[in-house]
């Protein structure tokens, strides 16, 4: 069982987390022209790299969506950072 660092809550085990998607995907402006191929790529294409991967995860209890970089071979967590500005 892996442990991930929620940028707000700290270290928790993987049962509290869910994978969301690749980091860096931006929803196309759907009122502009978006080709079927672009749209399909947005919905379905995932990089799924062997090795270092930067992804969006959510910590379910506190609903923090955050960016995490991890190694998909060694399972090491390299970095986790909030997507939002720090608490005021």
């Amino acid at each position: 069982m892996q442990r991930f660092p929620c940028p707000f809550c700290g270290l928790r085990d993987e049962r509290e987390f869910s994978y969301v998607g690749d980091f860096g995907k931006v929803r196309p402006d759907t009122k502009a022209r978006v080709s079927d191929a672009e749209w399909a790529a947005y919905l379905y294409d995932q990089k799924n790299p062997k090795g270092q991967s930067t992804e969006i995860w959510v910590h379910l209890p506190c609903q923090e969506y955050f960016k995490m970089t991890r190694d998909t071979v060694s399972m090491d967590v390299i970095d986790a950072a909030p997507l939002r500005k720090p608490a005021q």
Partner: peptide, 8 residues
């Protein structure tokens, strides 16, 4: 306005 699913 755009909404979730409009392109789909």
């Amino acid at each position: 306005q755009p909404y979730v699913g409009n392109r789909g």
